[in-house]
Computed example of a mutant assay.
Amino acid sequence: MPSNLPRFKAAACHTSSVFLDAAKSADKACDLVAEAARDGASLVAFPESFIPGFPVWAALQAPIMSHDFFRALSAQALRLDSAELTKVRMAAKRHNVVVSIGFTEGTVASLGCIWNSNLLIGQDGSILNHHRKLVPTFYEKLIWAAGDARGLRVAQTSIGRIGMLICGENTNPLARYSLMAQGEQVHISTYPPIWPTRPSKEKGGYDLRRAIEIRAGAHSFEAKCFNIVSSACMDVGMKDALGQANPAMLDLIEGTPHAVSMILDPTGQIISEVLSDSEGIAYADIDVAQCVEPKQFHDVVGYYNRFDVFSLTIDRSQREPAVFIDMETGEGDERPVQSSQQETVRPRVAELERAVAD
């Protein structure tokens, strides 16, 4: 039976950042968007913290030894109106593709407060969703601030309803359910290149590859959606930077399991190449109509639930450090005007959006 639901090709980029260089990482993203578009992709996903790279040093040495790395990462943190993100947005528009990209986000309110963020960009270059990781995981708390739920949204696009979560958020059943409850059809999961928890020669360390396989399959199966998994990989530049700062860091990660990139269907089956050790792009053809049949078996946001027993409330309000109430003088009257530190960024974002539209 014919279906009017979207069909398209998805691309999961398994790639390395240009370590701690936001401008060059953004340029690399634009090149990969162009490559994926030439290969017919309509959705291109990039790894967690792709711009400007994942702060793996936080796992490998004491915080008192890592001030230089933190300063370097903070200096490369991006705001929404940055030239680097604008360049990626223009590439999405130029190639008529949806792009998901991870980045370390900064703020005008503090030079040292940064977030692990992800941006979903529409085919017209517009910002469809802006998500900050709700809870940095384990040693990531030494780097990134906790986000809020502003980005727990599913975006309606011409290729389906798209949601996204960052790394460990894919372990959070309530975060995942919040996207299921919005009719998610295509899920994007992003991960770092490695995630060490013990020296690699010790037993009991975290197996990032296996964890990704479990989480990706679970969400696809439970949500009955496609899952685009994009993970980073380590390159020579990243290893050199770590080794020059502290050679012991390279010894600690020798043999640590690498992340994987892949694409899964609504039954949890892998339908693309699985990429791990070297850079590449995993592709798969997506037919959103395939989300329908599995819903007959268990639809946890429909008939396969007990809403009289369970309830979930999600507060998606933005958490700002302060709200300022000023008096604006008009003709013959004064009225209070409420603003936050974000107001200084929004006009510039609007200006850039108009430039992209033109």
Rank of each mutant, 00 (worst) to 15 (best):
D21N: 11
F70I: 12
I271R: 02
E202R: 09
L142S: 08
R79A: 08
D39Y: 13
R153H: 12
V356P: 02
I271C: 06
V97G: 04
D81L: 10
F103V: 10
F226S: 04
F19P: 02
A11G: 05
S25Y: 05
N116H: 13
Y206A: 12
L5H: 03
P347F: 10
D68Q: 09
F103E: 00
A248Y: 09
V44I: 11
L242C: 09
E169L: 01
L252E: 02
T15P: 07
Y139D: 09
D265A: 00
P6D: 00
V288R: 00
C13A: 13
Q244F: 07
K141Q: 12
V274I: 15
M164Y: 08
F50P: 01
T171A: 14
D39T: 11
F297A: 15
V288Q: 02
G160F: 02
R348Q: 11
Q185P: 13
V288K: 00
E222R: 09
L165F: 02
C167G: 06
V356E: 08
F50V: 05
L250S: 06
T267G: 09
S82K: 02
G106Q: 01
E328D: 12
T344Y: 15
Q244M: 11
G122D: 05
P321L: 13
F103Y: 13
H187R: 11
E184N: 14
D265H: 00
P55G: 00
A36V: 07
D326W: 09
W115V: 02
M238I: 07
G160M: 01
E84D: 14
A211K: 07
E213M: 07
V97F: 05
H298F: 13
S276M: 14
R210A: 15
T344W: 09
P6E: 02
A41R: 01
G102S: 09
M234P: 04
A350N: 12
A155R: 04
Q338R: 10
R94K: 12
F8L: 07
A218N: 08
P247W: 01
F70L: 13
I127C: 06
Q290I: 15
L264V: 06
K87D: 10
K141R: 11
S220G: 15
C167T: 05
C167Q: 03
T329F: 09
S317G: 10
F297L: 14
A149Y: 09
E254A: 00
V260C: 11
Y283G: 04
L111G: 10
E84A: 08
K24A: 12
A181Y: 08
G122W: 02
P136L: 00
P347Q: 15
G151C: 08
S74V: 10
Q318L: 15
T15L: 06
R71P: 10
F324M: 12
D299N: 14
A75G: 12
